[in-house]
Computed example of a mutant assay.
Amino acid sequence: MSEPMSNENKGAIAQFLAAPPDSVGKTLFVAISVCLVASMIVSTAAVSLRPTQEANKLRDKQVNILQVAGLYDPASDVTEAFAAFEPQVLDLESGEFTDAFDAATFDDLAAADDPELSRALEDDPASIGRQARFRTVYLLRDDAGELDKVILPLHGYGLWSTLYGFIAIEENGNDIFGLQFYSHAETPGLGAEVDNPRWKQQWNGKRLHDDAGTLQITVSKSAPAAGADFHVDGLAGATLTTRGVDNLVKFWMGEEGYALFLDKLQAGEF
């Protein structure tokens, strides 16, 4: 049998119940109770919605890869269409694929925070701090099984944010099919014009390297000496975003990024 409530406790509870509704004690009690209930609801919703959020995140990534490869059809099933791609984890230091990781689950961005899988950058034009030594790339083959395009992830800092995107390279390792960003926080109407279809269309048919093998692709207001084949017009009124895109593309297409892999593509090794 439980012990009877002490007179002291009876007095405290009675005083609380007898207090007016707008008393400090009751106000604090209601506020704390509402906070606790709300936090429980939010936590429960976050846990229950996580699988849906992850599924939406994966679908968005697949849509962006399909779009940059020119294969996206809103009327088609995204998962079925994406099955045409062959994901591979690329070792940037060797330019070769590795089977040390599962390409379906490897998290490139998380790897950049792992000291064993990444390196700190001294020369960091893309302003990313650390670079993962491994990246997931996506191969697209034609009906005959021959390589058609390669989709490479890239990212770098613009004016206000890090821009995350993909670039599609033709099988020759030099011609660009397309580029687009799927996440950024650049200024609407200015830097955010990286999402403008007319601006993105400029990338189609541009080249990375000249005949001598020198990286020439440039995003700027004026064409470089190398010529129009290597030039994408900068964004009007968004000088720093333009510079950021120029820096990140040159970084990832250069020696610190996919250069070895692109060399192997040009040699027909894949």
Rank of each mutant, 00 (worst) to 15 (best):
S2E: 14
M5Y: 03
M5P: 04
S6W: 11
S6F: 09
K10L: 15
A12I: 15
A14P: 05
A14M: 12
L17M: 03
L17R: 05
D22W: 13
S23C: 06
V24S: 10
V24L: 12
G25S: 04
G25I: 11
T27Y: 07
L28E: 09
L28P: 09
F29C: 03
I32Y: 12
S33F: 12
S33G: 08
V34I: 03
V34L: 10
C35T: 15
S39K: 10
S39G: 15
S39A: 15
V42S: 04
A46M: 02
S48T: 01
P51Q: 04
P51I: 08
T52I: 14
E54D: 11
N56Y: 13
N56M: 15
N56D: 15
K61R: 10
Q62G: 07
I65W: 07
I65S: 02
L66P: 00
L66E: 02
L66T: 04
Q67C: 12
A69P: 13
Y72T: 05
T79P: 03
T79I: 01
E80W: 01
E80G: 03
A81R: 03
A81M: 02
P87C: 06
P87L: 08
Q88H: 01
E93A: 13
G95I: 06
D102E: 05
F106M: 00
F106S: 05
A110K: 13
D113E: 06
R119N: 01
A120N: 08
P125F: 04
S127Q: 13
R130T: 12
Q131R: 04
R133P: 03
R135S: 00
T136G: 01
T136L: 03
V137I: 14
L139H: 14
L140Y: 10
R141V: 14
G145Q: 09
G145A: 06
E146H: 14
E146L: 12
L147N: 07
I151A: 10
I151Y: 13
L152C: 09
P153Y: 04
G156K: 04
Y157Q: 10
G158R: 01
L159Q: 00
W160P: 05
T162L: 14
L163A: 15
L163H: 04
G165M: 08
G165D: 06
F166Q: 10
F166R: 07
I169Y: 07
I169C: 07
I169L: 03
E170K: 08
G173P: 09
N174V: 05
F177G: 02
G178H: 05
L179M: 14
L179A: 15
L179N: 10
T187E: 12
T187A: 11
T187F: 08
W199N: 11
K200F: 06
Q201T: 00
Q202L: 04
N204T: 10
N204A: 06
L208G: 06
D210F: 00
A212M: 13
T214N: 12
Q216A: 01
T218S: 01
V219A: 08
S222R: 06
A226Y: 01
G227Y: 02
A228D: 11
F230G: 00
V232I: 01
A236T: 15
A238G: 00
A238Y: 06
T241R: 00
N247R: 01
V249T: 13
V249S: 05
W252T: 04
M253Q: 04
G254K: 06
K264I: 10
A267S: 15
G268Y: 10
G268P: 07
E269A: 15
E269C: 14
F270H: 12
